[in-house]
Structure formats: structure tokens, C-alpha cells
Design a binder for these strands. Structure first.
Lengths: 251, 251
DNA sequence: CGGGCTATTGAGGATTATCAACTGGTGTGG
DNA sequence: CCACACCAGTTGATAATCCTCAATAGCCCG
């Protein structure tokens, strides 16, 4: 039996050119865009593999960058006071990210002006932002695709904002576990395993708690048989019980 | 001298047809779209005035709704456990909102699936969502306009999320005051006055605090001469001091 | 097998919520 | 126009939650 750490951190990058092509074709938010757009993307996107903990910062790409996660997972975070961080999203296979030059005329697009860091062995496909803009004008179905994706993220973070500002620690953690499990493709054979490497500190940083509190809450979940967890991984066992904790128990 | 309450709650709606036209032309996020789009909007948007505390709920508009705030302000909130609410945005003159039917093929657009409530006497311009969709295909500059606006909101709430999950009460309140002041046109003669009616309970609901805590913090700000406040209003006095509190004091 | 890092556990303390009583402004009705 | 009632806001005491600090345990790697 493989250890969880091996399951979550496959060795090497599987993004051969032929695989890359199929990855691009299957990007969820691009379903419905034109054939020529796919072809352009195949031509322009170059793959790059990241090992765990490698970072991509907007400072490295002053001229902007458009990227898509092919395999693995990235966390999006920002530093706050000292060495603390706030993690506010996780990007997995098929999610895009954009760094934009601050003064871009024409289409103002969203940028996570934040640092991306690989949580597991990760492969990204990236291209200069400048090459993306022509595609947007050429294919009128591309902008709406971005639009929808963006709308989803806004919905997600609004929901998360609500959970984190109105509910207390136990609820937040339960919600976060569900949220994370819904991200990214499951590892075959592990339907409840959150499919990326996720230290307690990051879990805590996603819900505004400390590592200690998070650890205590996970321990209590584990005692009740809701989850199993270890160093860098969490596996949900009792889905309905977790879901119940996420409901707004209206007293 | 007018009372603050009078300043914040003008009587009556000023949206005569002729004013409406100029309002539409000056909507910030639509700058740069085509002339014909403006004409269509003028034709389709109908004005509606809301007095303080009136609500617009998605339940009333199953088929969707597109609206723009002409004057006044709306808060966007959702109920959580019991009679608590979380307020997660404030819409002022020029901001749009969208309710969409859940299963809308074609362009999936963002909806605040939440309740809007007038914070002051407010005038909105609204139209059926179905009439907006043709405009989006007719004018290719319209979708990017929405896109940019959406991107801004995502940026805003990400920032607010960070503040609320990593900093403590005093910082959050200071940040919120700045945030709110940056919203909406200032009332002439009151450069530091947050230009809408805003009870303590709502202030608290925007940063995940209770009314009591918020009140205490505002009292301490007032003691230090940073603000003046009263029933439903807050006026910033010492901008630099507030700004300093908002900085990430990195210990 | 030991070093270093992640995670756990415990005790104590700070922050913020809760509960309750009170104050005072705002608007209403006499 | 004034008195009253109501509700937003304030203030205080207490309690709960979560953080901080510190020590310990366990996993992963050399």
C-alpha cells in the first residue's frame, strides 16, 4: 500500500506534448469555445513543472501571465503581518490564473495579485498575457467563458466570507473540508481524500484560525470518526455528518 | 444646518426621464461601450424608487433581473442562523446587480443570490435579464465592461476576506470605514461622511463583529478624534490616522 | 538512527461574544 | 407643540472562544 504522501506527490511531470493537448481540450471552463482557439492555445501554451513548494509570483511576470493548471494543485496566498499568510484559494486541474500588468488598456482582467505555490508536484501551462488578448477578440465565446469562471469564483469566495465571518471554528473547518474536497479530481481509490498536499498551517490560513485550533478540531472530528488525517492530508469518511456540520444550524 | 439624517435621506426620487438618461450615460463601468447600447438601455431600463429599508429579493424575479443603482445605496446581505445577517457589499450610484435564472444557457452571469435592501432613499433602474442578453451579443464591448467590474468586486472581497480573517477588530473596523467611504459619491460639504444610512448592526455584520464590539471600537476612535458618529452615520475626521490603522502593522 | 520540521497537547491569557440594564435620539400621536 | 414610546446605540459584567506560548510527540529525510 502506498503512503498518503506518495499518493499526493507523484514523481515527475506527466505533461508530454501529447498529454498537454488533451489537457487543453478538456479544460472545463473552455468547453464551448471555438476550435481555432484551442489550436492557438496549443501553440502558445508551454508546460512547466513545479515541485512541491515552488512559487510563482507576479513580480516575476511584470508583463502579465496567463496560466492553466494541468495537474496537481496550487494555493493562492498573500503574506500578512510577519510570517503569517492568508490562503484564499486553491487552483487545481483546469483552473486558470492571470497576472496582468497594472495598466492594461483594452480588457481589464482579473489578476490574483498574489503568490501561487505548488502544493504537490504540479504541471502548469502558461503563456504571455499579450498572446491571449488577440484570442479574446477573435473568439467571442472566449470572454464569456472567462466571465463565467470568474463569476463562480466570486460566488465561492462570497460564500466562504460568510462562513468565516458568521460561524465559529468547528463549522468553518467542516465547510473548508467540503470545499477542498470539491476541488480538483479525486485520487482513484480515495474518494474522500483531499487530493493535494495540505499542511495544517494552510488549512488554518484558509479559515482564519491558528494551526493549533485547527489541529484540535480535526482531532475531535477524528475521534468521532468523521475523518482520518495525517501529516499533510485529510480524508473524509462520514460525508453526511460533515455536511450536517456545514448546515447553518439555525438554533 | 441640516441634520445628518436629512443629508443622508433626501426626500423623493429624482429620477425623471431626463435625469435618467444622464445617469445611464455616466455609469462608470459602461464607459467605452457603443452608442447603440446606451440607446437600448435607455429604452429598456425603467426607474423605480425605494424608500429606506425596502427590499429586492431574487425570489421576486425568478426570470432574472438586471439593475443599476441611480442614486442612493443598497446593501447586499444574506441571512444566517436566526435573525443574524452578513452584509457583504454595498452598491451605490453606478453599481449594477444581476439576478439570473439558475439554468441560463449561453452566458452564465454572476448573480448576487442575495437580498438587496435600500439603505437610504434610493432610485434604481432595472430591466428584465432577457433583454440584456441581446445587447451583450450586439456590442462586443459590453461583456468586457461587465468583466472588469466583476474583477473589481472579486478583488474587493478578496481583500476584505483577508482583513477579516487575519486582523483583529480594531483594524477591521478602520478598514471598513475606509472601504465604505470609497463607495459612492460624497455628499457635498461632507467629505468624510459615509454617504448612506448605516446602522451599527450593519457595520458589525460587514466585518463579522457584534454591534456592541463595533460600538466600543467606534467610541474609542471618537475619543481619539478620528471620527464623529451618530445614529446611522459615521464621519471620518482624521484620514491619515485611520489609514495608519489599516496598514498591516507588521509588529 | 538522529536532525529538522510538522503536528499535537496543555495551560494560561487576551479578545470578543453574550446578556442585561440603561441612555438618548427620532418620530409619532395626542 | 410636547410627551411619550420605541428602537438604535451605549455601557458594564461575565463567559466563551480562540490565540499564544511552550513542551512534547511523530513523521520524513538524510
Amino acid at each position: 500500500m502506498e503512503s498518503y504522501h506518495q499518493v499526493l506527490n507523484p514523481k515527475g511531470c506527466i505533461c508530454s506534448p501529447v498529454i498537454r493537448k488533451s489537457v487543453i481540450r478538456r479544460i472545463p471552463f473552455l468547453q464551448g469555445v471555438g476550435e481555432s482557439t484551442f489550436e492557438s492555445l496549443e501553440k502558445n501554451l508551454t508546460s512547466r513543472s513545479l515541485v512541491e513548494a515552488m512559487e510563482i509570483s507576479p513580480l516575476q511576470y511584470q508583463a502579465g501571465l496567463f496560466g492553466v493548471v494541468a495537474t496537481g494543485a496550487l494555493k493562492v496566498f498573500r503574506h500578512v503581518q510577519g510570517d503569517n499568510v492568508v490562503v484564499f484559494d486553491v487552483l487545481t486541474a483546469g483552473d486558470f490564473f492571470l497576472y496582468t500588468a497594472s495598466e492594461l488598456d483594452g480588457l481589464r482582467m482579473y489578476t490574483y495579485p498574489d503568490i501561487l505555490q505548488a502544493m504537490t508536484t504540479t504541471c502548469i501551462l502558461a503563456m504571455d498575457l499579450a498572446r491571449l488578448l488577440p484570442l479574446l477578440t477573435a473568439d467571442t465565446r472566449l470572454a464569456p467563458a472567462f466571465f463565467s469562471e470568474l463569476a463562480d469564483r466570486l460566488r465561492q469566495i462570497s460564500e466562504r466570507f460568510i462562513r468565516c465571518s458568521a460561524y465559529q471554528a468547528e463549522h468553518r473547518v467542516a465547510y473548508l473540508l467540503q470545499f477542498l474536497l470539491s476541488k480538483g479530481p479525486k485520487k482513484p481509490g480515495y474518494p474522500g481524500l483531499i487530493p493535494f498536499n495540505l499542511p495544517r498551517k494552510d488549512l488554518a490560513a484558509m479559515v482564519g484560525l491558528t494551526m493549533e485550533t485547527t489541529s484540535r478540531i480535526l482531532a475531535s472530528f477524528e475521534k468521532d470518526g468523521l475523518i482520518t488525517s495525517g501529516r499533510g492530508w485529510v480524508e473524509l469518511l462520514n460525508f453526511t455528518a460533515i455536511d450536517k456540520l456545514c448546515q447553518a444550524e439555525s438554533l
